[in-house]
Amino acid sequence: MNKKRKELLVSAISNGTVIDHIPAENVFQVFKILSLDKTKHQVYFGTNLESKKYGTKGIIKISDTFFKEEVINKIALVAPTATLIEIRDYEVASKVSISIPSKIEGIVKCFNPNCVTNMEAVKTKFEVLFDETGEIKLACHYCEKTTSKKNMTFFM
């Protein structure tokens, strides 16, 4: 019963991609990172939905769109818990978790105000590292300073 109601909250798609288990507060950041504000395809989304696993969650369904792995992995910074489901003819064709890439280009600003990426027209580049608690942090390719998760701000 419960399962059926959930499906009704965000319409099903016949072909395309479902991104589930997005942290509710980051749904719009996922929109921006994947440039869904510019797509011509139908997009359905819900946020602050109930989630047994995480309390609340967001979900996005994009018709007739499939993402390359390196594109979808960009959302790992804001939605590490997300699951990616590819739908073909109303059937689940594949279901994978997001994996965190080892390098990130663009997307995030370097936290160091005196970094060249904040002074000149230079695209940011980071190596992805983890601190002692397993939290993600980014080491800048240019100024070599690390930006911790709480200090991450996104372009756009």
Partner: peptide, 25 residues
């Protein structure tokens, strides 16, 4: 004075760069 400026310069220069200090980096 800007951190990371030497790395950036090494990517746009056709000749090698020696960093003689880039800010606090």
């Amino acid at each position: 004075p800007v951190e990371g400026s030497a790395r950036f310069a090494s990517e746009v220069s056709r000749v090698p760069i020696i960093n003689a200090g880039d800010g606090a980096n």
